[in-house]
Simulated assay, not measured.
Amino acid sequence: MSFFNKVLASVGIGSAKVDTKLERDTVSPGEALRGVVEITGGNTEQKIDDIYLSLNTTYIKESDDKKYTVSGLIDRFRLAETFTLAANERKEIPFTFNLPSDTPLSFGKTKIWVATGLDIKNAVDPTDQDFIRVIPNPLMDSVLNAVSSMGFRLREAECEQAPHRLRRRLPFIQEFEFVPVSGPFRGRLDELEVVFFPQSSGETEILIQVDRRARGLGGFLAEALEMDESYVRFTVTNGDIPYMQQKLQSVIAKYA
């Protein structure tokens, strides 16, 4: 490679391009995501130090009483060792990885995407982004359908910075905020918040915040002191799916 071409490559002129093609863009937590990374060489030979895929989302972070949106890394996967890409060479690298069980779902404002990057020393690193749709697995779907069947409407779903006591592997949690519009809890609850803490594809821990409606002066004071809120933790498995609504209704009724 001529000195002139080396200079051009180092500043990203005539450098490699990357394009990731997914087999499908809809997947559930725990399922496999497959695809191929297509790399096309530029006008000059380049050494590729690393190829990686990262799974990302955004979440709300609070600092100094201000809220702002930041990117959050869910997981990162390395695809290839160092290799040299010739000028105009085309290379395909197939991949398969399982979505982590704690990947957020594509509800509300929550977006999830796969970012592909080539690590090229002393150069502008080529990148590519592909958004995916993450849908509930059967167990999560059963819980969300049960809440809906009890007369709750999903008002908001958002990833937020996790308080220290709720922090697990990731620095954020996804909250599903429901309001009762019909059914047994209309008029008894202000809202219901649900958070999933998946243990496996067939088992998940659930945290529910039950926010009771204030009634009279005592209720007003309780609400002002946040004594009208109860936090409930319990675990559900695939074996609970046929009876999910009865199980959730029984749990919520104890605190309504």
Rank of each mutant, 00 (worst) to 15 (best):
K6R: 15
K17A: 10
G30K: 07
V37H: 00
E45Q: 15
Y52S: 14
Y52L: 13
Y52P: 06
T58C: 04
D64V: 08
D65P: 00
T69V: 13
I74D: 10
L79P: 09
L79D: 10
L79M: 11
L79G: 09
F83A: 10
A86Q: 15
R90G: 07
K91R: 12
F95A: 07
T103E: 01
T103G: 02
T110H: 01
T110D: 02
T110C: 01
A123E: 03
V124Q: 14
P126G: 01
V134D: 02
N137Q: 00
P138T: 01
L144K: 10
V147G: 00
V147P: 01
M150Q: 08
M150P: 05
G151F: 10
E156I: 07
A157R: 03
E158K: 05
R165K: 12
L166A: 09
R167W: 09
R167T: 14
P171A: 00
F172R: 00
I173Y: 09
I173Q: 10
V179R: 12
P180R: 10
V181P: 02
G183I: 07
V195F: 06
F196E: 06
S201E: 11
T204R: 06
T204Y: 05
E205S: 12
R213C: 01
A224L: 12
L225W: 13
L248W: 08
L248Y: 08
Q249G: 08
V251A: 05
